[in-house]
Design a protein around this nucleic acid. Structure first.
Lengths: 206, 206
DNA sequence: CGCCGAAGCGGGGTAAAGTCCGTTTCCGGA
DNA sequence: TCCGGAAACGGACTTTACCCCGCTTCGGCG
């Protein structure tokens, strides 16, 4: 009904008309500006449309929903991250033992989520159709792949990967949100990273 | 700004005027009816107010936000669950070894989340102020407590509890949502339960 | 180069969330 | 029992996400 595109991620599809692509870029850029100026909370679709000199309809066509904008923003920022994971230097990139890569991946993802927490949370959409950002596929499949390279005995690796992804995302997406009193310090990042290391060590030891 | 009450959970506060309490009950009951009839997706605040014969202002004062209603519904349903956990028969309730209780708790929570997934997801609110349901405190503190009774060596048990909670909630709240094609079968529950067992075994073994 | 169908655009329209404030109800104390 | 102020109520009002559909623009093709 509401969804016309079958495109899984509301990111850029295969072929997009030149004007459409231009507008998408422009909208993302404008959204970034507004994000810096007033915060995710106060970005309205009308304001975004007006500020970028486009029609409201255009905004919705490009991103489908308010959360979609933030998903796009996240996706955009994630491209660099993904690059590092797939082709960067070890231990995050290929070349290191899978266990070390797993630890490094989690720590990198925690950092990424902390840096983009505002966007990531805004990309969350309790309503039905769209998963919590284009992010998850990467996390899950990557973790899944690394698990496959570690000898874990008989285990459902797919589900283990999902659970570990939850252990990574849950804290920052669901449970810990910054408030005026407790603004999610760097210390939290450090603690979460250590804890992830510990968790993975426990899960993977023979 | 928007929040006047400092009350952590948007559930019933310590002392509530008789009419207020009555209305809360009535609203929750009405919400349950509508839930059964049209599904969470289609419950609107206006309709809820009208159907229960109350003003819209009342609905918002009681629950703060649309998501708040579902949080209240969840909270309500969780009371029985909590009872089982705190005082029911082992291994879920007290009396069994902590490891077994941990396994049982996770499996019970998975079942609970599957049964209430629609509500739980609707209680999710990407916007700032309120955490993802009054649920989490229970999970986290309970898991935390059980971990404390297991000898795990030097570890940050608080964070481990948060991560395990994420491993429990993440799959059902963030990643797996029922669609028309794949309606989240009982099989999923079974697999998740097994996987949880496996995860906990890995985490807790010496 | 000009045609034409598809894709994209714009902005007014709708419905639902959330706010405000004057009025009403509760209830502890005198 | 009656009073006063705090709490709760209601519903009109405002804001915002999201839809619709006539019009414009793009870009492949003859």
């Amino acid at each position: 009904m509401a969804v016309k595109r079958t495109d899984l991620t509301w990111g850029a599809p295969q072929t997009e008309r030149a004007d459409a692509a231009r507008n998408r870029q422009h909208l993302i850029a404008t959204a970034r500006e507004m994000l810096a100026e007033v915060g995710a909370e106060r970005i309205t679709m009308d304001a975004l449309a007006e500020r970028s000199g486009l029609g409201k309809g255009t905004v919705f066509r490009r991103f489908g929903t308010r959360a979609g904008i933030f998903a796009a923003l996240l996706d955009d920022g994630e491209r660099a991250f993904q690059e590092l994971v797939l082709a960067g230097p070890p231990p995050l990139g290929p070349g290191a033992p899978p266990f070390d890569r797993l630890v490094a991946y989690g720590q990198a993802r925690i950092r990424f989520l902390m840096e983009h927490q505002e966007i990531a949370r805004a990309a969350l959409d309790g309503r039905q159709p769209i998963p919590a950002g284009a992010q998850t596929p990467l996390s899950q499949t990557h973790i899944r792949m690394l698990l496959g390279q570690i000898d874990l005995g008989p285990t459902n690796l797919d589900l283990l990967a999902v659970q570990l992804t939850g252990a990574l995302d849950g804290p920052l997406l669901l449970y810990m949100q910054p408030t005026a009193e407790a603004p999610l310090s760097q210390r939290v990042e450090l603690l979460l990273s250590e804890s992830w290391h510990d968790l993975v060590r426990r899960v993977c030891r023979p």
